[in-house]
Design a binder for these strands. Structure first.
Length: 327
DNA sequence: AAAGCGGGGAT
DNA sequence: ATCCCAGCTTT
């Protein structure tokens, strides 16, 4: 083992974060943690991790649950396809496979998650490369824009012999999360400062990847039936969750005609996604149908905003359209 | 290789 | 306001 590797492991023994899934060996629990952590901050994932495992403590419990129950627990965590895939995975396998290659075949598991489960739960010697490790290795070796495969190969070569690969992967991740920060890295406190080729200009490694944020003009149609509001199961964006009809603003006339309603404007709602700014005009119309109480359904945050907007207007007019307004 | 897919915390 | 997070899937 090289000096810098020993230095990192020594630092990790002292400074490791204490997290609910640290030291976890149950592959199902590791899997749930890793899927929740995909593009999601540790602090945000934590409450979902506890709630999800309390409700679905085993793969069998998840298999026995309905998709809607699973999405209800996932509500608010974002990237809902993750929950759909996790549920589908539970239907598809009796038990989790024990190798990286087999894990990689499961829905929703890519190179990172398969490697994380294989190394942490099964001790397989495979490097898990997440955003933290990409940044740490880019700086350590002054790589401006390493290709994913090159990075994976590099990380694999760097795995120390005779060390728990799960511990090693997590040590690199903790360094990225606590010391080798994206902006304002704490190089003075870094156990690898004597070995780092990028510390003179850490902001240069890795080169930031920017994507344009685009504006999108949408309309949401809140149809008020006899018992509540008309809900659809959403596809594409917010896949699997429920909400009122949502479509490009210019489609409003044809959509209204298709439902046989004459909607009136009820204000607008803004919602930000990672690379989209949504401006949603809310429209309201009485509707010849049943409808339902939306608050018991798994709803994306955007739909909560839309429904609150509609409710606020109606409350102002003295109407209570659906029974249990969310507090 | 690039785009689509949530939500929220840090700066 | 912008960035980016223990990424994956589809095009």
């Amino acid at each position: 083992m090289e000096a810098w590797q020993k230095a990192l492991l020594a630092w990790y023994r002292e400074q490791a974060r204490t997290l609910p899934w640290r030291g976890e060996k149950d592959p199902y629990r590791v899997l749930v943690a890793e899927v929740l952590l995909q593009q999601t901050r540790v602090e945000q994932a934590m409450p979902y991790y506890r709630r999800f495992l309390e409700r679905f403590p085993t793969l069998a419990a998840l298999r026995a649950a309905s998709l809607e129950e699973v999405l209800k627990v996932w509500q608010g965590a974002g990237y809902y396809r993750r929950a759909v895939n996790l549920h589908r995975l539970a239907q598809g396998v009796e038990a989790l496979p024990r190798s990286y290659a087999e894990l990689l075949k499961l829905p929703g598991l890519g190179p990172y998650t398969a490697a994380a489960v294989a190394s942490m739960a099964f001790g397989e010697r495979v490097a898990a490369v997440d955003g933290n490790i990409r940044r740490v290795l880019s700086r350590l070796f002054a790589l401006e824009d390493p290709a994913p495969k090159a990075l994976q190969d590099l990380a694999q070569r760097l795995l120390p012999q005779g060390e728990d690969p799960g511990v090693w992967n997590q040590a690199l991740m903790d360094l990225g999360a606590m010391v080798c920060l994206p902006k304002a890295p704490r190089c003075a406190a870094c156990p690898l400062r004597a070995f780092c080729q990028g510390q003179e200009e850490p902001e240069r490694y890795p080169k930031p990847r920017r994507r344009a944020v685009r504006e999108e003009a949408l309309a949401a149609l809140v149809l008020l039936g006899r018992k509540g509001v008309h809900l659809e199961r959403l596809s594409g964006r917010f896949q699997g969750l429920y909400g009122v009809p949502l479509f490009p603003l210019e489609e409003l006339p044809e959509r209204a005609q298709a439902f046989g309603v004459a909607p009136r404007p009820a204000g607008k709602v803004r919602h930000a996604l990672t690379h989209r700014r949504l401006e949603v005009q809310v429209y309201l119309a009485p509707w010849d149908g049943e409808g339902e109480d939306p608050w018991g359904k798994p709803l994306p945050k955007l739909m909560e905003k839309v429904l609150r907007q509609a409710q606020a207007l109606l409350a102002h007019e003295g109407v209570v359209p659906f029974p249990h307004a969310k507090p």
